[in-house]
Design a protein around this nucleic acid. Structure first.
Lengths: 336, 336
DNA sequence: GTGAAAGCGCTAACAT
DNA sequence: ATGTTAGCGCTTTCAC
């Protein structure tokens, strides 16, 4: 029955127990068809009674594939990155692969070191949420193992990629404000050098352009905000001859910081990029552009497995359109 | 799967290139001290120029340890579970181990199958957020590999464990309501059979007892709520001769559902278990009992590595006290 | 349909 | 301080 746990049973133990050759056990374990039913039953009984589990390390060593993929992200506690992990894991488990998670904390040096470690572990592919740093190492990475970038690219390096269609999403969100009658729409975003921010700002500009509205640089606030800086900016806007009547917040951090900063009775309509918890509640509900995270995770994981099954075609760049979720969007008469 | 590079360099390639024995390369790679500086430098140069990376599969096969731990949880997208993953990964990376993440989706069958797969992969330990199902398989699991349970135990099985001190936390939260003058405090929680819910309800009762307040069963609502059911319950409470003036919500789901259900002007003080995004904002700020997730993750991972370094002492049960975060807790004159 | 033997890349054990 | 050899548990190759 139980082997006592002294030493895990090996394929040899099973072969001896069943009175067959090692190769036959291997065939049964791997579901190969050229095994008679009687033999299969005999081997399976031995596997059961010895509680045999194939040693993946030996298999990986021999087959040179690990059936494991890595997800390297900046911060697994961040909701979008966590949900992406869930979607990737779902695809992995489907094909009997494992997902390892490594975290870079936005640090390029750590990004390289965790990836080095993963390569050593023979991962079959990497879904990478890059830090945004360039490096000779990352340039060569794609030649060693299939890589799919998510959220943003590695600067100067082409890989398979799955990104949100940030520009289109932002354009849609801002256009919804225009359609609700707003003509003075401010932009509050994170650091301009971030890939997603650049794209979302482009979408903002495009929506204004499409509505024949001028871009007023005074209404653009692009930095890593704290509440004090944002409060000051809001006060400044109120002093303008024609202050903004709506704000497009180009990240969930911007949106939540705005929520914390705005007086409860401030008459400002908000649209945010990325949904966040209780966005449906605060300030009567805040409209958001919501990334299709499950779709993106599935696409990223599938891109890896596509490469693993031998696909050598050119890089694919998937743009997943986000969904605009209108909430409490009141029409507003345009000012004269 | 060959990914373009001809063949990765092996320890033999390095040995040949450097003109030394493989064992010497092994010594250098593993940082053993009995290697002369000259030799070390020569080997390291060869490693560099061949872009050599040790094959972890071969190492695992030989050493019988994988330097990898598994984190098995119910839903990696859930904030507490995601943050726990981050804390576990931080400890793992510190000791040059990898963390694999598997998800059970509250399904006992999947719990068993993912763990079986992990055992095959030779993980050195498992941090398990159990589904709560009993099984013969889980009973024996601890004999095969070190297991640390988080959040709740495996029913009927003792393992090392790291739990939040739910009872104490709940007691503290309810006591804060009592201290603010509340005498009619309702309990809104999730399914009573959940381990954490049982403990939190016990803390609620204890706080009432300590304050000489009777437990009024009519003020206890324990089920998986939706907004309609909760709205009905709130309406019922308003019809009581002495309706509750405060509510203790024993999960973040209960708290956020309450927030979505309560009219904005409802004069009810809330305290929730588990912090949630924007709890500092909604309804003027909601006090919460906040789990010390980083502490718990660190403790769980360390418990694994303690076992791996040979510790065979009895099971350790760590109870991490949560932190009460008061927000907008107004004093209320007790009714006559 | 089944089996024997070689070897994946590494490290433990034992030389020297 | 450095080298040689065996073997971890599996799959591949080839033989029957």
């Amino acid at each position: 029955m139980d082997t006592g746990a002294d030493r895990r049973a090996t394929i040899h133990d099973v072969a001896r127990h069943a009175g067959v050759a090692v190769k036959t056990v291997s065939r049964v374990v791997n579901g190969e068809r050229s095994v008679s039913d009687a033999m299969r039953a005999r081997v399976e009984a031995s596997i059961q009674s010895l509680d045999y589990r194939p040693n993946a390390a030996a298999r990986v060593l021999r087959k040179r594939v690990s059936r494991s993929i890595a997800y390297v992200c900046e911060d697994i506690a961040e909701p979008v990155q966590a949900r992406l992990a869930g979607a990737i894991e779902a695809v992995a488990v489907e094909v009997d692969a494992a997902m390892t998670v490594s975290v870079t904390h936005h640090d390029a040096a750590r990004e390289q070191s965790v990836i080095e470690s993963l390569l050593s572990r023979q991962v079959d592919g990497i879904v990478l949420w890059p830090t945004g740093a360039r490096s000779r190492f990352l340039e060569r990475l794609g030649r060693i193992v299939p890589v799919v970038c998510v959220d943003r690219p590695i600067p100067g390096v082409e890989t398979d990629s799955v990104f949100c269609d940030n520009q289109r999403g932002a354009e849609e969100g801002v256009s919804a404000l225009v359609a609700a009658g707003h003509r003075r729409i401010a932009f509050v975003g994170d650091l301009p050098e971030l890939f997603t921010q650049t794209e979302r700002f482009a979408g903002y500009k495009q929506a204004l352009y499409a509505a024949d509205l001028a871009l007023d640089e005074r209404l653009v606030f692009r930095r890593r905000q704290g509440i004090p800086a944002l409060a000051k900016q809001l006060a400044y806007w109120q002093l303008l001859p024609d202050p903004p009547t709506a704000i497009f917040a180009a990240s969930s951090l911007s949106a939540t910081t705005l929520v914390r900063t705005l007086p409860a009775d401030a008459d400002l309509q908000l649209v945010g990029f990325d949904d966040f918890s209780l966005a449906d509640v605060v300030r009567g509900g805040i409209s958001v552009i919501s990334q299709e995270v499950p779709t993106m995770g599935t696409a990223a994981a599938q891109a890896i497995f596509r490469r693993l099954s031998g696909d050598r075609t050119g890089f694919t760049h998937t743009r997943v359109p986000p969904t605009f979720i209108p909430r409490n969007l009141q029409s507003r008469r345009a000012p004269v």
